[in-house]
Simulated scan of single mutants.
Amino acid sequence: MNPTLEIFSQGEEIVTGQTVDTNAAWLSQKAVACGFTVTRHTAVGDKLDDLIVLLQDISQRADCCICTGGLGPTSDDLTAEAVAYAFNIPLEFDEIAFEQISRFFAQRNRAMPESNRKQAMLPQGAERIDNEWGTAPGFSLTYGRCWFAFLPGVPLEMKHLFHDRILPKLSTRFLLQPGQLITIKTLGLGESAIQERINSIEIPAQVQLGFRAGADDVQTKLLFPFDYPET
Rank of each mutant, 00 (worst) to 15 (best):
M1L: 10
P3W: 00
T4A: 02
T4S: 12
L5F: 02
I14K: 03
G17D: 07
T22V: 13
T22R: 11
A24H: 05
A31S: 06
A31P: 00
V32M: 06
G35W: 07
G35T: 04
F36T: 01
D49T: 09
D49G: 09
L55T: 04
I66N: 00
I66Q: 03
G69M: 03
P73N: 06
T74N: 10
T74C: 11
D76A: 08
E81P: 01
V83E: 00
A86I: 05
F87Y: 13
D94R: 02
S102M: 00
S102N: 07
S102Y: 01
Q107I: 02
R108G: 03
R108P: 01
R110F: 04
R128D: 02
E132Q: 11
E132G: 09
S140E: 02
L141F: 10
G144I: 01
R145D: 12
R145H: 10
P152S: 04
G153P: 08
V154L: 06
E157P: 04
L161N: 02
F162Q: 02
D164Y: 12
L170H: 00
L175D: 14
L175Y: 08
L176S: 03
Q180E: 14
L181V: 14
L181T: 12
I184Q: 15
E191L: 10
Q195W: 07
E202N: 14
L209M: 15
L209K: 15
G210V: 11
D216H: 13
K221Q: 15
L222C: 15
L222D: 10
F226K: 10
P229V: 08
P229C: 07
